[in-house]
Design a protein around this nucleic acid. Structure first.
Lengths: 154, 154
DNA sequence: GGCAATTTAGTTGTGCACAACTGAATTGTG
DNA sequence: CACAATTCAGTTGTGCACAACTAAATTGCC
């Protein structure tokens, strides 16, 4: 039963380099394969994430969107402004609570969904990963993220 | 044996949202837990990656560093300039090839390594992941990255 | 009711990722 | 040798992540 105490410092640092690099590289590689398909939709990867969530919920406060995507207003505000500029979403202050801003897809934004259906098919085809592998990958990453998030709270 | 053809469009789009989000979130969570420990070293996460590689190789051309980390000069040039500004690395034009710039840790940069040894220990302790789990995670991510990279070349 | 604390979106500033480009040095080829 | 193609670091511009902050609206408490 090997623990970190059994390992020499240099080996630990090497492993850290490997893991850090792997996570970092995987994230950018993921971003990379989506870039081309999404360019046709005039979306960036984070904008695609936002649209995916909006297609599922139709209408969301910025606050709630940020909670779902774990992004704060510093990231979302300009991103949403750009999505509004290309005409995919509209924003309006909530009538009930003037602090809150509600985001919803425009007609163009809703029509975009049909085109977006091609994106995961292209990714799936390109990666050669099966559905089961996608599910398993997702679960592992989520487990990791939960561990990291809870670690960060100390 | 389920393939993507057996799945309805909306389910596929939902899964894509989940996987995209998971990868994105894991990367940022990883970044997040390293942020505090690295702040004490006056390093960002990508700067830490660069220093880890430099500690292993001692002296590297920018080109080679970029190949190892899969980063281009547009990312590395300003990052290395900042590392030079805090005194951790020095850059000089290669004598043999004036196009090339060689980067190496300064004395302060080499001394930083001793402090950096604490970082992976803290991460390991905080996440509760075992060495085996780290290794397995790394292998899965690398497999994924290879699949994504080869997919992007088409 | 009045006022402090909280909530919410937005702004500012720093750093990274990446595409597209520049300019200088080197290499290959006739 | 000459010169076109290539290589290399760097710059510019756009977009995202995040910390720290602002301003306005709401809520809670007396």
């Amino acid at each position: 039963m090997a623990t970190t105490r059994d390992v020499r410092d240099e080996d630990l640092l090497r492993l850290d380099r490997q893991v850090c690099f792997s996570v970092h590289a995987a994230s950018r590689a993921f971003n990379g394969v989506y870039r081309e398909p999404l360019k046709e939709l005039r979306l960036t990867y984070p904008q695609y994430l936002v649209m995916l969530v909006l297609w599922e919920h139709d209408e969301l406060a910025v606050k709630r969107l940020g909670a779902l995507l774990r992004l704060d207003s510093g990231t979302l505000s300009p991103l949403l402004k750009r999505l509004e500029a290309v005409g995919y979403v509209e924003r309006r202050r909530s009538a009930e609570d003037e602090r809150s801003v509600v985001v919803r897809p425009t007609e163009a934004g809703r029509e975009l969904r049909a085109q977006a259906l091609e994106v995961p098919r292209r990714i799936a085809a390109a990666t050669g990963l099966t559905l089961d592998e996608f599910h398993e990958l997702r679960e592992r990453l989520d487990t990791l993220t939960r561990a990291l998030d809870s670690a960060g709270e100390r």
